[in-house]
């Protein structure tokens, strides 16, 4: 009789435990995101040999180093570019790109909009902590108005990005936003998005305890978790234009905003070339499966 493994042992199996404790600060939300991601992998019974994670540069991108599954640490902002190539070369893989807001949206913003436009089958997890954490708390494209950063000592006056709206407008098939407080919903959302075919995007509001919160005197990590708890409104299926979070006085609109069907990149390529080239076109099914 085989003994079933407990959740704890499964989690330990998916982590590189000899690297723990990890580098993230006390109370950082990235650990919660990693925790939820691993729990979602276990709960959805995804084959861990069929999952590949690509990360860029930044605090969040260190996630790939702590997971005991295939991962790649890319150059800054190119996590999505690498994931695109990986997916096209081996369509059997489930590619996941995890990065922070500076990695995905600031320097990698161009890759983001084009991956969403082409609808490449991947899951993108963006951990938004409102500043550039690793380099010392500079103001980012997601910094809320009137919040200070190292490069904005009197407060930022720029309009921040509304990430679910960008993803929706560029054509993502699954768009959701949660905060580090909504762990159970986040886990279910990742589970759902892993099964979804197409460009799935999940934004997670996280707390940068040592830089953003300390610089702005918003309190410790626990205070930010309470802020997320009190100020968030769950609106599933809401219009993504309502989801903007411009200043700290706004309500945080969370939930699953978009869930639709669109042919993904490979499907539309096969369909179009099959129609135009007919018998001359050889479908690519992976490095070992295609017979020429």
């Amino acid at each position: 009789m085989t003994q079933t493994l407990e959740l704890k042992d499964k989690m330990e199996g998916l982590l590189r435990t000899n690297r723990l404790p990890h580098v993230w600060c006390s109370g950082c939300g990235i650990g919660i995101v990693l925790n939820s991601f691993l729990r979602a992998l276990i709960a959805s019974e995804t084959d861990e040999n069929k999952v590949a994670v690509s990360c860029g540069i930044g605090c969040t991108a260190r996630i790939s180093g702590y997971m005991n599954i295939d991962g790649f640490h890319m150059t800054h902002g190119r996590a999505l570019a690498f994931a695109t190539g990986l997916k096209l070369a081996n369509p059997a893989l489930k590619t996941v790109a995890i990065g922070g807001d500076g990695d995905m949206i600031a320097i990698g913003g161009n890759h983001f909009i084009h991956a969403a436009r082409r609808n490449i089958d991947m899951l993108v997890i963006c951990v938004n902590n409102f500043n550039y954490g690793m380099t010392g708390g500079q103001a980012a494209p997601t910094t809320t108005k009137e919040s200070c950063g190292t490069t904005a000592p009197y407060g930022s006056f720029e309009n921040p990005f509304n990430l679910p709206f960008i993803a929706d407008a560029c054509g993502a098939v699954y768009v959701a936003r949660w905060t580090a407080f909504h762990v159970r919903q986040l886990q279910l959302s990742i589970q759902e998005a892993l099964k979804k075919k197409g460009f799935s995007f999940i934004e997670i509001f996280s707390q940068c305890t040592e830089l953003f919160l300390r610089k702005n005197k918003y309190g410790a990590g626990l205070d930010e978790m309470k802020f997320f708890k009190q100020n968030s409104v769950i609106k599933n299926g809401a219009d993504t234009r309502e989801a903007e979070f411009n200043s700290r006085n706004d309500k945080i609109v969370v939930g699953k905003f978009v869930d639709r069907e669109r042919p993904d990149f490979k499907e539309s390529m096969d369909g179009y070339f099959g129609k135009v080239l007919k018998d001359k076109f050889i479908r690519y099914e992976g490095p070992l499966q295609t017979k020429i």
Binding site: L7, M11, L20, G31, I32, L34, N35, V183, Q187
Partner: peptide, 16 residues
């Protein structure tokens, strides 16, 4: 209930 385990950023606590 394992809610402590879900909230732990450091994988330091698990419930059963």
């Amino acid at each position: 209930c394992d809610l402590c385990g879900m909230y732990c950023p450091d994988f330091a606590i698990f419930g059963k």
